[in-house]
Amino acid sequence: RVIAMPSVRKYAREKGVDIRLVQGTGKNGRVLKEDIDAWLA
């Protein structure tokens, strides 16, 4: 299970990103909004 705040999950869904593919850089591997942006870049 991916650790991410609900707002980040929603952001990823809106961008069409599968959050399971994104490498989290936050505490304990948490996926941050910046990680979604970096994955899209």
Rank of each mutant, 00 (worst) to 15 (best):
S7Y: 10
K15L: 15
K33H: 12
E34R: 11
L32D: 05
M5P: 12
R30Y: 11
V22L: 09
N28W: 14
R1I: 15
S7F: 07
Y11S: 05
D18W: 04
I36S: 00
A38I: 13
T25G: 05
L32F: 08
T25I: 02
V22H: 01
V17Y: 01
D18T: 05
I3K: 13
D18L: 06
K15S: 09
K33S: 07
W39A: 07
V8A: 05
Q23I: 15
M5V: 10
L21R: 12
W39V: 08
Q23Y: 12
V22Q: 01
R1V: 13
G16I: 03
G24I: 02
G24Q: 03
V31G: 00
L21M: 13
K10R: 15
V2H: 08
A41T: 14
L40Y: 07
V17N: 00
I19N: 00
I3E: 10
G29K: 08
G16A: 07
R30W: 11
Y11D: 05
A12K: 00
V8P: 02
L21E: 09
D18Q: 07
V2I: 15
G29M: 08
R20Q: 14
L21T: 06
I3W: 02
Y11H: 11
K33E: 07
P6S: 12
L32C: 07
A12L: 02
D35K: 00
V2F: 04
V31A: 03
S7T: 11
V22Y: 01
Y11P: 03
V22E: 00
K15M: 14
I3M: 03
E14L: 15
G26L: 02
D37W: 04
V31T: 06
L40A: 07
Q23K: 15
W39D: 02
A41V: 15
A12Q: 01
R9F: 12
D18G: 03
M5R: 13
L40R: 06
L21K: 13
R30M: 15
V2K: 08
G29H: 09
W39G: 02
D37M: 05
I19S: 02
P6H: 10
G24W: 02
I3S: 08
G26Q: 02
A4N: 05
R20L: 09
G29S: 07
R20D: 09
G16F: 07
E34T: 14
E34M: 11
A41L: 13
L21N: 09
V2A: 12
R20H: 13
A38M: 13
A12H: 01
Q23G: 09
D37R: 05
K15D: 01
A38H: 15
G29Q: 07
I36M: 01
I36E: 00
D18I: 06
K10F: 07
R20N: 13
R13H: 12
K10M: 09
L32A: 05
L40M: 11
L32M: 10
V17P: 00
D37Y: 04
K27N: 13
Q23A: 11
R20V: 08
A38N: 15
S7M: 08
W39E: 04
R30T: 12
G24L: 02
D35F: 00
E34Q: 15
S7E: 14
A4H: 06
